[in-house]
Write a protein that binds this DNA or RNA. Structure first.
Ligand SMILES: Nc1ccn([C@H]2C[C@H](O)[C@@H](COP(=O)(O)OP(=O)(O)OP(=O)(O)O)O2)c(=O)n1
Ligand SMILES: [Mg+2]
Ligand SMILES: [Mg+2]
Length: 1135
DNA sequence: ATCCTCCCCTAC
DNA sequence: TAAGGTAGGGGAGGAT
């Protein structure tokens, strides 16, 4: 186990014990507490972050940021890829370096206005480069690089937004200063890393290409027919002669030198300095003479006409150039860490690739899913699994044939002592035992002349597109597993022998990409996948079902998909290592050891059974972002700043996916007790992972909401920020953004404006110069973020209506009422109308009234009716209550003179609700965001009203008769501030609300605010400095419906650590607030819903066992409850 | 039983 | 120096 070069000790845990030398060594962190391993915590703790996984299983990357304008696949889609609407439609910017506004802000602007923002520069995808004042040298490089692309100042974006039209670039172009000397020139770190491929200096590209393909053909000729399994022939080994190389070492050194330059390493600490100086001239020629450079583009066929293939630039190693950007990167040194991190993360790239694929191929995928209905099972299927060979390496060196037979790996660093990870190693390199996930120093130790080449994410994207383009051409059932790997269900797509078809597909892929793929063919997905493994590299393999058992019996269990380190280790500890042995284990035994699902999987897989089907893309269930590298905080400020940026990231991703979510989960890694500094540079080391989640009522994608909740979650984890090594934020319980309209929080304006109907209206709006997307998003932000200053667009700034005129909480400028486009307004959906009317303090409504009386349009008058319905409902009479007596077990009165169980009391209530129950159910069923109703919705505004409008007329009538409609009063915040008369006595109690100072709506003395829906206490709690009150407020915030207090309280269970400590001021304040709330609740509910009160106190009791505070609260308020209950029922509740 | 939360595991 | 992400499946255990 201590086989790694860095010298770890024997693992003390079962997981760590698995790290057998042969297969994968445990990571540095894996080992248990050897004194020589600073990463490892004392052995007692079994859970290790990056400690228990074998490194070879590790790693991968994503970078979904960069989306292409068009699917390569769709030949003519390239010009129509841009969004058809939006100010920046067709514009795709790349931001270089520091800018004001920040690149993040520019990104937001672009994304919110139909534009694009790429993190991976490529001439193919970028239309404008945005930067401020680059040094001359950098500037010139930029120009050489971006040849033809406009390089503009950020103001171009900002001003265009302000003017709401795309301004000419000319005035914003950064002037070219050619005075800089060549020596000073330096590509920005970004360009050098991302953009450049190592230029191949040989002139024999074409030749080699041909050779490669010939070799493929030759191989094809030699394969197939007879053998049980086709054997594969490595192209590298068979066709490419090594004789053209003088020596591996020499070439390696030269190559490393160039790579070092590409990596923008400033220290110049890399070894091969001398070799470098020799080559520098050549490299620089290559670099600056793009046009003249005899690079691949000019020579290669139409197959490689894309941007990345055309931009083979080599970068000289310029030691003289200052390299400020390459200093140690952590959250402590880079305020823009999150964004920068993702630019370079390979795992981020592969992790987000799927989303980009989904977008690019959505049309095809939709068509597919319909087709896939005709699923005749029983028939034998033909499944192909296909996977590119050493993908990241192959793509980068696809125009460097002389590297194909040399060990090459993709890595950020060539430092032979470094802890950068190998992303992918080619097959020659694998002969040395080099694998993905390995530290580069370990790789170099095994193979000193290993060549390291940099990532080229744009090229990966492009090749993946070509790959999938080819696949979709041959098969209608394609399931993407990753950017380089897919399943094809060929059952209905075969026009020939499956193996022949497979050869054709592979050949076509090679022609399109100059990279080889391997494939497995079988009757099910499992066997196809396993076959691919046997086929690699550059081969194919067919496993007939009858050979499956033989094939499997000697196959390591670990090789089964879905079986990783942990499970295989567990089995190995029972002396079970091969599928053959596994067949002797009973299903029951497997269930017992591994659970139902994994047990079944093991049992089936070791027999070659796999009934899963090649499926289309399924709906996204969660969207998140996390970083576990370079995360270091000194204080809470650092942590908050980081969290904020992470929230922005997630918010943008949600919007990018067109979804909103209700559950926010924060995951934090902290240094494990006893663990030292991580072995990996800036790594997270041996960590403990903790997570906390909160589910809110209304789905959101709002950054502000995310941030607010993320802070609460973070607080609830009660961590020492100095020990934090990684943070992740994820959203789940997703809804489509255009459906998630239930909550004020929702993206209503935005999604509505994005709808086709809105687009239509928007054009009108633009002509009149108002209520355009920009304006709308300001409104939206106002609504969402409360006190938040937003820069107004240029012309709305002159004639502004201050929205804080009366509320004082908003500091945002709205477009003047007089400039609003009435045509647009009157067609707004009611909930948006309602929102906007609130912002204009009711003036909008008045304006539209005028309009509607003039024109009498139904739609406008409909919109005007600000929906306001009421809760209520239940004149639950005492008389009825008394009428029921029965028995009930779970809950009962102690001395039951009346004999009413809580349940029965509820039934009484239900009976009284009968008149509106049908309508109530309807609403409940129809609205996605309803989780629980407090008898009746207190308001049908917002989405509820939308739902209402969609109901059939008769149902609507039913509903309205059950729920008296009220005109809402003066609303300050959400629109759900509606009320209804209840029984007078209860109403009276309610009037002693938390905010006595605030009179109820004078227009209707009967109006009160039931606890479940009171804007008052929600608002008070929300702005309170008491953390636990913040959480409680969150539960009701943006709920379309009032939820019973018990359901609001329930999720507080996870946040008990936020309770104040005894004696503090917060304790007293929190106690008094909650006591008051509970008292009112008791008064309000004692007659109508005793079960609700029972639930509340069960919760309090539960909390009391974990929280001193709740113990106090419970004990202090229980007598009040029992008193009340006794008065009303002549008994007390038993808990 | 079924849900929910907080994990772990797996794959690329 | 270096960029150890992402998303789904699944299980344990508690609440209902
Ligand atoms: N730990 C890992 C695993 C994968 N990847 C990236 C690089 C790979 O090229 C790509 C595809 O993963 P594969 O598992 O398909 O590996 P390769 O394509 O590199 O090799 P193979 O020929 O075995 O498929 O994902 C990575 O960065 N880190
Ligand atoms: Mg691969
Ligand atoms: Mg793969």
């Amino acid at each position: 186990m201590s086989s790694t070069s860095s010298g770890r000790r024997a693992p003390s845990t079962a997981a760590a014990a698995a790290s057998s030398p042969g297969q994968k060594r445990a990571r540095d962190e894996a080992a248990g507490g050897s004194p020589s391993d600073p990463d490892a915590a004392p052995a007692k703790n079994p859970r290790r972050s990056f400690a228990s996984s074998p490194f070879a299983d590790f790693g991968s990357y994503m970078a979904a940021k960069n989306s292409k304008l068009a699917a390569q696949f769709d030949a003519d889609a390239s010009t129509s890829g841009a969004a058809t609407g939006g100010l920046f439609a067709g514009v795709s910017i790349f931001v270089d370096g520091f800018t004001i506004p920040s690149s993040q802000e520019l990104k937001e602007i672009m994304l919110n206005n139909g534009g694009r923002f790429v993190n991976y520069f490529s001439r193919h995808t970028v239309t404008h480069i945005v930067c401020t004042n680059l040094p001359d040298s950098k500037m010139k490089n930029l120009r050489a690089f971006s040849k033809g692309l406009p390089v503009v100042k950020p103001a171009w974006v900002v001003d265009s937004l302000a003017e709401n039209r795309l301004l000419s670039c000319a005035p914003y172009q950064i002037s070219q200063n050619s005075s800089s000397s060549r020596k000073q020139m330096k590509l920005s770190a970004f360009f050098s890393e991302k953009q450049n491929e190592i230029r191949h200096q040989g002139e024999q590209n074409n030749q080699n290409k041909d050779i490669e393909f010939q070799s493929l053909s030759a191989q094809e000729g030699s394969l197939c027919q007879s053998g049980e399994f086709e054997s594969e022939v490595s192209l590298d080994n068979t066709e490419l002669s090594k004789d053209s190389l003088s020596s591996d070492e020499q070439k390696a050194s030269a190559f490393e030198e160039r790579v070092s330059g590409d990596f923008a390493v400033d220290e110049g600490e890399y070894d091969c300095e001398t070799a470098c100086s020799e080559r520098k001239g050549n490299d620089m020629d290559g670099k600056f003479g793009v046009a003249q450079s005899p690079d691949a583009k000019s020579r290669c066929s139409n197959l490689c006409s894309t941007s990345s293939t055309g931009s083979h630039l080599s970068v000289p190693l310029e030691k003289s150039a200052a390299k400020p950007s390459s200093r140690p990167h952590s959250t402590l040194t880079d305020p823009n860490f999150v964004e920068n991190y993702f630019k370079y993360s390979r795992l981020h790239f592969i992790g987000t690739w799927r989303n980009r694929y989904r977008k690019r191929f959505s049309k095809l995928l939709e068509a597919k899913s319909i087709k896939s209905n005709a699923d005749h099972s029983g028939k034998k299927k033909t499944i192909i699994h296909i996977d590119m060979d050493c993908f990241f390496v192959s793509v980068v060196i696809r125009n460097m044939p002389d590297l194909h037979d040399k060990p090459v790996a993709v890595c950020h660093s060539d430092n032979p002592k470094g802890t950068a990870e190998i992303s992918s190693a080619n097959y020659p390199a694998r002969n040395y035992g080099i694998k993905a996930g390995m530290f580069v120093r370990d790789a170099k130790a095994r193979c000193p002349h290993l060549m390291i080449v940099p990532y080229n994410f744009d090229a990966y994207e492009e090749v993946a597109d070509q790959f999938y383009g080819t696949l979709h051409k041959h098969c209608s059932k394609v399931q993407a597993l990753s950017c380089d790997e897919a399943f094809l269900d060929m059952t209905e797509c075969l026009d020939d022998d499956p193996e022949e078809v497979t050869r054709r597909i592979r050949s076509e892929i090679f022609h399109a990409t100059k990279c080889t793929a391997s494939a497995g063919i079988a009757e099910n997905m499992l066997l196809a996948r396993l076959a691919t493994r046997s086929a690699k590299p550059n081969g194919q393999c067919f496993i007939p079902s009858e050979k499956a058992d033989d094939y499997l019996s000697s196959l390591s269990i670990k090789a089964l998909p879905g079986i990783g380190h942990t499970v295989s280790t567990k089995l190995k500890s029972k002396e079970i290592e091969y599928c053959g042995q596994l067949r002797n284990i009973s299903k029951d035994a497997l269930h017992k050891d591994f659970g139902k699902k994994i047990g079944d999987l093991l049992w089936n897989y070791c027999r070659g059974i796999d009934n899963s089907v090649v499926g289309s893309v399924q709906e996204t269930k969660s969207v998140g972002a996390e970083i576990n590298w370079g995360v270091r905080f000194n204080d809470n400020k650092d942590a908050e700043h980081f969290l904020t940026n992470l929230c922005k990231e997630v918010s943008l991703r949600l919007q990018g996916c067109g979804v909103q979510g209700r559950t926010i989960t924060l995951k934090v890694k902290t240094r494990r007790e006893g663990a030292g500094e991580p072995i990996k540079y800036m790594g997270c080391g041996d960590c403990e992972t903790t997570s906390r989640s909160m589910t809110i009522a209304g789905a959101t994608d709002s950054f502000v909401t995310l941030q607010r909740i993320a802070k609460q979650l973070f607080s609830a984890l009660r961590l020492d920020v100095k020990e934090v090594r990684g943070v992740g934020l994820a959203m789940s319980k997703l809804e489509h953004a255009d459906l998630a309209r239930g909550a004020p929080q929702g993206n209503m304006l935005e999604s509505w404006l994005a709808s086709p109907a809105a687009k239509l209206e928007k054009r009108h709006g633009e002509m009149l110069g108002n209520v355009d997307v920009a304006g709308a998003s300001i409104l939206q932000d106002l609504r969402r973020s409360g006190p938040l200053s937003i820069a107004a667009t240029s012309h709305s700034s002159e004639l502004n209506l201050r929205s804080d005129r009366s509320s004082g909480t908003h500091n945002v400028e709205l477009p003047p009422l007089s400039q609003l486009d009435l045509e647009v307004l009157k067609n707004l959906p009611p909930e948006i109308m309602s929102e906007m009317n609130d912002m204009y303090k009711g003036e909008l409504q008045g304006l539209l009234k005028t309009l509607s009386s003039d024109k009498g349009k139904e739609s406008s008058s409909k919109s005007l009716a600000l929906p306001a319905v009421t809760q209520n409902s239940v004149p639950a009479g005492d008389a009825n209550l008394q009428g029921y007596r029965d028995h009930k077990d779970s809950m009962h009165f102690e001395e039951d003179t009346k004999g009413k169980s809580v349940k029965q009391l509820s039934e009484v209530k239900a009976a009284n609700d009968a008149s509106c129950s049908r309508a109530c159910e309807l609403v409940q069923r129809t609205s996605k965001c309803v989780t629980q109703l407090d008898l009746m919705p207190d308001s049908l505004s917002q989405a509820d009203f939308t739902v209402l409008q969609e109901l059939p007329e008769d149902v609507k009538a039913d509903l309205f008769s059950a729920l008296p409609l009220h005109r809402s009063g003066d609303k300050t915040c959400n629109t759900s501030n509606v009320s209804e008369s209840k029984s007078p006595n209860v109403s009276g109690a309610e009037n002693k609300s938390l905010n006595d100072g605030r009179a109820d709506d004078p227009k209707d003395p009967r109006i009160f605010l039931p606890p479940g829906s009171s804007q008052k206490w929600i608002e008070q709690f929300r702005v309170s400095s008491c953390l636990i009150l913040n959480v409680i407020a969150e539960q009701q915030t943006d709920s379309s419906y009032s939820r019973p207090l018990s359901s609001v309280l329930e999720p507080v269970a996870s946040f008990l650590p936020l309770c104040p400590t005894s004696g503090s001021e917060e304790w007293n304040e929190t106690l008094s607030c909650l006591s008051e709330l509970l008292r009112q609740h008791i008064q309000l509910k004692v007659e109508t819903d005793i079960e609700e009160l029972y639930k509340c106190f069960c919760l309090l009791k539960r909390f009391a066992s974990e929280s001193e505070f709740f113990l106090e609260l419970h004990d202090s308020i229980l007598p009040f409850l029992q008193d009340y209950v006794n008065q009303h029922y002549g008994g007390t509740l038993h808990f």
